[in-house]
């Protein structure tokens, strides 16, 4: 795939919640993510950044509109097919890091690779090198409760990178990190984005981080106001 091809696009995405507290989370969002891009999404708290990311990451279905991943429409696919696409092409770093508490840092990173059927030794080597790159070489065998918030966040990033996703979606990956680790994470994400055929979308409040992105998408009240 040549650089600059459309990896993911959202067309008129709208997501409303009905129920006891009705809300419009995303309102008519149109966007394109191309390979090689490093895109930042910014906006005030509660503006719908996470909601948009869940939809782009095939974790949530838009009420209307379409998400195209690698030219394939996704809204008509069943859950299993969407899960398979997630496994193959998408990596996700959640706003709250969400590690599995019974598994060590290394094992948490291993999970997606094992799920994808990577041979064990290869998977272990990769998990270990990812953790080392993120400065967690000596914390590999710690359980999540034996890690600080920032360390957990970095494990979550390693886990998202495990299957070399075409598109990495990260929800405030540097939120809990000190300047030094934050810079390291930013470098890793930027590096990944500029690898052939990949792209990274980051939600962030960090103005400097956003500034370093190739493109910034600004959201207010569920609407994209500037790209």
């Amino acid at each position: 795939m040549a650089a600059g091809d459309v990896l993911l696009s959202g067309e008129h995405i709208r997501r409303v919640l009905t129920g006891d507290v009705p809300a419009t989370l995303v309102d008519d969002a149109n966007l394109e993510i191309r390979t090689g891009e490093f895109v930042a999404i910014i906006g005030p708290s509660g503006s719908g950044k996470s909601s948009l990311l869940y939809i782009l990451g095939l974790l949530d279905r838009p009420t209307s509109g379409e998400v195209m991943l690698l030219g394939q429409a996704t809204s008509a696919l069943n859950d299993d097919a969407r899960t398979a696409l997630r496994l193959k092409h998408l990596g996700f770093v959640f706003q709250a890091h969400f590690l599995l508490p019974e598994f060590t840092a290394l094992e948490n990173v291993l999970l997606p690779m094992q799920r994808a059927g990577m041979p064990d030794t290869e998977a272990r080597a990769r998990a270990s090198s990812l953790l080392t790159d993120l400065g967690l070489k000596d914390k590999q065998n710690n359980l999540p409760r034996q890690l600080s918030g920032g360390q957990s966040q970095r494990v979550a990033i390693a886990r998202a990178l495990a299957n070399k996703p075409s598109l990495l979606l990260a929800d405030e990956p540097t939120g809990n990190l000190d300047t030094h680790s934050s810079a390291a994470v930013q470098d890793i994400l930027r590096g990944l984005a500029h690898e052939a055929g990949r792209a990274v979308v980051v939600v962030t409040h960090d103005a400097a981080f956003a500034k370093s992105a190739d493109r910034v998408i600004k959201i207010v009240d569920g609407r994209i106001v500037a790209t």
């Binding site: 974790l59 899960t83 398979a84 959640f94 590690l99 299957n163």
Partner: peptide, 9 residues
């Protein structure tokens, strides 16, 4: 998480 990571129902 497992489902988000690609585990099926």
């Amino acid at each position: 998480i497992l489902k988000a990571l690609g585990y099926t129902a």
